[in-house]
Design a protein around this nucleic acid. Structure first.
Lengths: 193, 193
DNA sequence: GGCTTTTGTTAATCTAGATTAACCTCCTTT
DNA sequence: AAAGGAGGTTAATCTAGATTAACAAAAGCC
């Protein structure tokens, strides 16, 4: 089944009966995007929370100077959405755009509210997922203050070696909060010794 | 009752029966700290999630150079803990130290697991709380990349005017990721129109 | 194969914010 | 009232990383 990776992922955290899985699959929609397509567009309301089955996407923000800042990347088994927009159903601050052809399993806002009622463990599941996401985000704030750009790049590389391979460098530079020129310089320094 | 502010806060998100409140109060402990005391110490396991009833605390991190970085502040009606340490029950990355005499309502790890079973709405409650915390943290990451120090200070001031009054400037500088000298310069610029 | 677009590199110059250091309040405490 | 500490300011100098610009290497695409 197409949603198997999702079920497998959820059952790492909570137990699901076969009945739960039937209900779940009724409220989850599989959707395919081509490279370049948007899952969420800044200004639109974010209608879905998306679980990545395959492919790769970036979440980014265009500032008032028109410069893009990468908020996060997502690959297989990650979640992506503008969560702030999704929970409030107000316009999104971020874009989510596919960097490869991508397959996702999507929860709509209403679908998810129904699922919370019918499968109470999902409440626990999402609590746990978001706890981890919050902890990771807070660590990133700390790293941005206490590490140099070079150190942050090394951390990123060690933490997400799979992402580093799949994503162009200028997007990684943006994720790290530096220019592509400076990242290039760092990389040159790291390869010569 | 001493835990009234907590009940009031929770019932803004989910309904509680009087029975729920009795159960809750059996698993929540009120605790007082003096100014300067630690709620959590870097290296210890974070044993509690604390709801602030009164007072003020800072969450901070001491880096390898011995410099302190402020992760967040907490005042009345905020939550504080090293969540990463609390959920994994591994040593904390952060300190939580009181900046004023402080009264908190504390959930122990085991107590909270019991409460999740006995009051399923709490699962929902904490999911919602942490969703908002995650969204706020992600916005902070974006601000740190796309705004200047002066702009970030203005945002902080507008967003948390009550915190700005109660906390020394050098800690606010640290929260903003700048030195106290540079914050002082920014403030001088802002007062002379 | 050539031609355009997308990525990545190198180098010169510039700037936001760090560092260092000296000095100025207010509070406490004795 | 003196002394010490905690918090805040000002100013000179320094640096990590930005900006600008030019070029090189891949990667589509006709």
């Amino acid at each position: 089944m197409e949603i198997d990776p999702l079920i497998k992922y959820i059952t790492r955290y909570v137990e699901l009966t076969s009945q739960d899985i039937v209900i779940l699959s009724q409220h989850v929609k599989i959707r395919n995007y081509l490279k370049g397509q948007y899952i969420v567009q800044q200004g639109d309301v974010c209608k879905h929370e998306s679980f990545m089955i395959s492919g790769c996407a970036k979440t980014s923000f265009i500032d008032k100077e028109g410069d893009e800042h990468i908020v996060m990347f997502a690959i297989e088994n990650w979640w992506t959405a503008d969560l702030g927009s999704f929970i409030s159903q107000e316009p999104a601050d971020y874009n989510v755009q596919c960097l490869e052809n991508t397959k996702v399993a999507q929860f709509s806002y209403d679908g998810l509210q129904l699922l919370y009622q019918q499968i109470p463990q999902l409440e626990r599941f999402f609590r746990m997922i978001i706890q981890h996401a919050f902890v990771a985000s807070q660590k990133r704030v700390v790293r941005n203050f206490s590490l140099t750009a070079k150190e942050r790049y090394i951390v990123f590389r060690n933490q997400y070696p799979d992402i580093e391979q799949r994503v162009p460098q200028y997007l990684i530079a943006s994720y790290l909060g530096i220019t592509k020129q400076f990242l290039s310089k760092i990389r040159a320094e790291l390869t010569t010794q």
